[in-house]
Design a protein around this nucleic acid. Structure first.
Lengths: 132, 132
DNA sequence: CAATTGATGTAATAACATAACATATTGAAT
DNA sequence: ATTCAATATGTTATGTTATTACATCAATTG
């Protein structure tokens, strides 16, 4: 999918995520956008919904947060499954794509006649700096 | 880890999960246990915390729910990473263990000098029956 | 210009999770 | 058996995350 022109709210939310050091919760985004006229969670959630659809933002299910995709200009949907390593201390997130992992997971679900829609791989732990 | 004798509340919560067709939210469990004296969410969350620790229950991060481990009598912690296929229509959950997937994910994080603590792999989609 | 579509604004509420504090139970050491 | 510590439990309140419902606005198009 090619990313269409972002609307005002979508741009505001995306900019906040891009400038952030790590993932942010929807309510943290809301707070950062109060000066720009945001008043309600839905303004954030609606923008996020589109940004997720366009593949420029990821949702981290295990920490209820959102992060800008690490591949600027790229369409993340074309990379297959994305795995995330999330530092529980500093919040830093690393992205990873591995075709063999994709392949094995998809081979398994195919064997089960299961139709996959969305796959989440999230590894929580400590990054190099925080583990030291 | 060997599973110790469960306490009263832990047993009640575990029994509810075992008898359930699929994953349940903490509040659904609470409702099912009101007749047994449960009044507050914390009673459920505290029992779940222990059951997760013992490896007899899994938390499904992407749907904020909990499910009894599919390997009765077994200690799930010894199987390495568990992958789940979750049917978004009927709620049915399948468990899967694959050493190659583990290995590749762990090789990657090791290369990043990242210290993994807990890994989540969840595939949402439609099971065979629901996809038909 | 009406009609449709997509975006936005606002209030209320639902759903998920934890903090703080009190009490009770259990089990080991004396 | 009694004391002590550790664990489990009960209760209230609150914090956090997400959605429903409804109204309005703006751009596009027939």
């Amino acid at each position: 999918m090619t990313t269409p022109q972002l609307t005002k709210n979508q741009s505001l939310v995306f900019d906040v995520l891009e400038k952030a050091e790590g993932p942010l919760s929807a309510y943290t985004i809301l707070d950062k956008l109060r000066d720009h006229g945001f008043r309600a969670p839905l303004q954030v959630y609606r923008a996020l919904e589109k940004l997720l659809e366009y593949g420029v933002v990821h949702r981290l299910e295990s920490i209820n947060s959102f992060v800008a995709c690490a591949h600027p200009g790229d369409d993340c949907h074309s990379h297959g499954i994305v795995a995330f390593a999330i530092c529980e201390s500093c919040g830093q997130v690393m992205e990873f794509h591995d075709h063999e992992v994709d392949h094995r997971l998809m081979a398994w679900v195919r064997g089960q006649k299961f139709k996959p829609a969305k796959t989440t791989i999230e590894i929580r732990g400590l990054c190099e700096a925080c583990a030291a």
